[in-house]
Amino acid sequence: MALVTAGVVVLDCAEPEKLAAFYSELIEAEETDATANRVEIRGVDGIRMAFRRDVTATPPSWPRPENSLQVHLDFQVADLDEAERRIIGLGGRPIETKDPSGPFEERGYADPSGHSFTLRLLPSTTPKQG
């Protein structure tokens, strides 16, 4: 029997209910457990996240050096532009965008509490032409 089984990514924040709602919409997740100070969700692909109340939580300042990164999440998407529109509509914000004139493999964002995450374009499975 394994000493450690699958874990969960936990983000500290002042308002766990609001942050859980943001990520629930982003990764199509359902709430699996909630207490007064912690909310846990599970996405359709099995990813588990939790949000723990910390009224003194300070979001990282990344990419500025004043504060450490603390935690960083990567999500894979098929369409960066569509995902960006959804993130902004949910209350997230871009923090590291590239020149929008061409396709890029990743973009950085912050959730409503200031935690950073990256969207990475899924690798193409279609054969190259030429």
Rank of each mutant, 00 (worst) to 15 (best):
L69R: 08
Q70N: 15
D54P: 03
R52D: 05
E66W: 09
I27M: 08
T35K: 08
H72E: 11
L73Y: 04
S61P: 11
R52P: 00
D74G: 13
E30H: 13
E30F: 11
W62H: 08
Y23I: 06
P60I: 03
T35V: 07
T35L: 06
Q76V: 15
V44D: 14
R38L: 15
H72W: 11
W62A: 04
V77W: 03
L73Q: 06
A29S: 07
G46D: 05
S61D: 10
F22Q: 01
L69Q: 12
V44A: 14
A21P: 04
R42W: 07
A78P: 14
T32V: 14
Y23R: 06
T56V: 10
V71K: 09
P60V: 03
Y23T: 04
N37K: 10
V39F: 01
R38A: 09
T56L: 13
Q76E: 15
E40L: 09
E40N: 13
D54Q: 04
T58S: 12
A50G: 07
R52L: 12
D74H: 09
K18N: 05
E40T: 06
Q70S: 14
M49V: 04
D54A: 01
M49K: 01
E25V: 09
F75H: 08
T56Y: 08
V55C: 08
P63Q: 11
R48K: 11
T35I: 06
P16D: 02
A20P: 02
T58N: 15
Q76L: 15
W62V: 03
R64F: 12
F51G: 01
D54H: 02
D74A: 14
T56I: 12
E66N: 14
N67G: 14
S61T: 10
F51W: 02
Y23V: 05
S68E: 13
V44M: 11
F51D: 00
K18S: 04
P60L: 07
S68P: 15
F75Y: 11
Y23P: 00
V77D: 05
E66I: 07
G43D: 05
G43H: 04
L19M: 06
A78K: 13
T58F: 07
I27L: 07
Q70P: 04
F22W: 02
L69T: 09
F51Q: 03
V71F: 15
W62K: 02
V71P: 08
S24E: 06
F75E: 05
E28P: 10
F22A: 01
D74N: 10
L73M: 13
I41D: 02
V39L: 04
N67F: 13
S24N: 07
A29G: 05
A57P: 11
G46R: 05
V39R: 02
Q70F: 07
D45H: 15
V39H: 01
T32L: 09
P65A: 10
F51N: 02
A21D: 10
T32S: 10
L19I: 01
R38K: 15
R52E: 07
L26P: 01
P16S: 04
R38F: 12
D74F: 08
G43Y: 03
E66H: 10
G46P: 06
Q70M: 15
A34W: 03
A57K: 00
